[in-house]
Design a protein around this nucleic acid. Structure first.
Lengths: 169, 169
DNA sequence: CGAGAAACGTACGCATACAAACAAAGCCCC
DNA sequence: GGGGCTTTGTTTGTATGCGTACGTTTCTCG
């Protein structure tokens, strides 16, 4: 078994206590290029899409995760909270907050599962259903905006590659 | 000029006040498939990479953004905070928190720009430089882990597509 | 020169995102 | 039948990530 669980990588400060390093700044001699790394590219691309999303949804005022939850609930009819989390790739702590905010807006409602007293079942309210329908149209437009730099062949290729990368294929 | 700045999309609850909808759950009749949408794929892929990152960095205990800031500072020698933010795709509010945490760990230090009293210049401490060097090695390994599902040709294609998508190409 | 615009860093609020710890309920399997 | 493991949902704490507003400083341009 592993000995220590986790150790903070705190480095003790250098010898001279107070003064800032006086001379030329320290440089990292390396051919590392942030902009070419997969992590940075994924982050930037996702960041741009989220920006498009929030702009495109406008008065509907849904975040990507809120929309995903709403759409998934509508697709399944009724789901438990943790199952919904797994199907939208959110951990229990995250989905919990999302659910709370959707409930506060009367978009979903919950009842306890009669066959499992631990679980709560989620379903759309009429308002949630109506909002989801409107949102789907907008979300399609958002996807077009995000994908605008790519042609049809590139879009298909990208989707396939990302499915492989995320373990969905 | 626009009339109202922003309106909350709150829907008034349906006629019956208290009771949950009794019958069958409302369903969203739609062929919308979350798993095929670019936003979800980007989110999942990024999510998987971040998980690899945090696992792979181990005791170095750097988040992707903290590493990006550290690497960029080391590359430039000395940068102002906002410029660093632009080069790592973080807005001023976000980079501010990252800088605070790196400073609290003695990895970077700041001085006010003598030629612009608004700006603060950031540079690596010796500890920060050492940590960054170690981190770069680990980060390369993380990238390999993330990209493991793809062969060389697919990796190159993905990088190109994401560069286009994020506006870096 | 001097007023308006722009840029710098900071602060607050909200929404993901996840680790860790927890109580309650259900399941497994001897 | 019952002890242990798992699952469900919650809470707390930390870290992005961005909108917005703010005070200070610098720049621009008439």
């Amino acid at each position: 078994m592993k000995s220590t669980a986790r150790r903070l990588a705190v480095a003790k400060p250098p010898a001279q206590p107070a003064a800032l390093s006086a001379g030329a700044p320290l440089r990292l001699e390396s051919d590392y290029v942030l902009e070419q790394h997969i992590g940075h590219l994924l982050r930037r691309s996702h960041q741009r899409h989220v920006a498009n999303f929030e702009k495109g949804l406008g008065v509907l005022d849904l975040t990507p995760t809120q929309f995903a939850a709403l759409a998934k609930i509508g697709e399944r009819g009724e789901v438990s909270q943790n199952l919904l989390g797994r199907q939208t790739a959110m951990d229990p702590a995250t989905i919990q907050g999302v659910i709370q905010r959707l409930m506060a807006r009367n978009l979903i409602e919950r009842r306890s599962d009669p066959s499992d007293r631990r679980a709560t079942l989620l379903r759309l309210t009429p308002a949630g259903l109506a909002l989801a329908k409107n949102a789907i149209v907008k979300v399609e437009e958002v996807s077009q905006t995000t994908l605008a730099p790519l042609d049809a062949r590139e879009r298909a290729a990208l989707a396939l590659l990302l499915q492989k990368l995320s373990g969905l294929a």
